[in-house]
Amino acid sequence: MTQTTGGLRPPRTPQARENPPRELLTTTVGSFGKPDYLQKARNAFARGKLTRAELEELERKATTEWIRIQEELDLDILVDGEMYRGDMVAHFAELLEGYTEGGLVRAYGNRYYHKPIISGPIRRPKPMTVDWWKFAQSLTDRPVKGMLTGPYTMLDWSYNEAYPTRRDAALALAEAIREEAEDLERAGAKYIQIDEPAIHARPEELPIAIEAMAIVTRNLKAKTISHICYGDFAAIYPGVLELPVDQLDLAMVNYEYKYLDLFEKDPFTREMAIGIVDVHKHELETVAEAAEGIRKGLKYVSAERLLPHPDCGLKTRPVEESIAKCRVVVEAAKLVRAELAKKAVPA
C-alpha cells in the first residue's frame, strides 16, 4: 500500500491522544481494502507459490499500514482492517472444527465467495483472532475493536448439513464464539464487536439470534457492539433492542436514513454507531452531507452515545476511496462537535 494519504494532518500529539473526544467518537465497521501487494500475495498463496509465513508477514505489514492510516485520519476507535481474512464467515469457518469449505457461490455482481458447510459438531480448537488483535493493539494507543462474526450470521451464511435445526446450529456456534470473545477480553480488548448482518434475514428467527448472542456476551465486561446492515431493519425493530449488546451499529445512509423514523414510535435505547457514508458507491459524500446524517441521528441518540462511521466494511472500496470516505466521517464529526460545543457555551 502506498501511504498516499495526501492532505492528512500529522498524527495527534500524545497529549491529544490522552484526551480523546467524548462525543461523536468515530470508528469504522471492520474491514478495509487489501493493498495490491497483499491481494497478489493471497493469490500466490492460493496457488502454492507463497508460504503461510510469507503471507502473514505481508498481512502484518498491511495491518500496520492501516493502523497508521486510521491514526492519521484521527479516527477514535480503530479496527485491524481484517487483512488476514477472506470474508467474515469463511475466516472463522476455516478455523472452527465442524466446518468444511463449500464451492463458490455468487454474492452479487461478479463477487463470489466460498460458502462454508456445517458438516459436523462445531468446536473451537484454538483462538482465532486474539493474536491479530494483540498485534494491532500493540501498534497504537487508541482502542482497537475485537471483531467477530455473530452466531446467527455464521449459521445463516453457511449451509447446515449437520444440525437438525437452525437454532441448534446457532447455539453451537454461539458457544465457540463466546470462547473467542472471552479470550479477546482476557487479552485486553475493551470493545468487542459481534457482527450480525444477517439478523433480519428471517425476522421470525430474531429470538434465536438474541438467544445465541446472550450466550456470547453473558460473561463479558467489555463494551459489546453488533453491526447490522443491508436488510429490512423495520422488520426486526423494536425487537432487536433485546439483542444483548451495548451498541447497535447500523447502516443508515444507504437507506437515506429512513429507519430513523422507526425511533419516533419506539425510542432507540442503545448506543448507536450510525452509517453516514455509503460503502457501495464510488462517489464521495461531502462533509456537509455526512454532518447532516449525524444531526439526524442526534434527534434520537445523544452525542455521547452516537458514533459516526461508514455504513459497512470498506473492503469493497479501493484503498484511496476508503481513506477518503473515512476522512469525510472524521471531518463531519468534528464539524458537528464544534456546533455542539458552541451551543453548550453561552455567548
Binding site: V105, A107, Y108, H200, A201, Y230, G231, H280
Partner: peptide, 14 residues
C-alpha cells in the same frame, strides 16, 4: 440503484 439483500439470502441485488 443501491444494493439490497435478496430476502433471506446472503445474496444481493441492485
Amino acid at each position: 440503484g443501491p444494493l439490497e439483500r435478496c430476502y433471506d439470502n446472503n445474496t444481493y441485488f441492485r
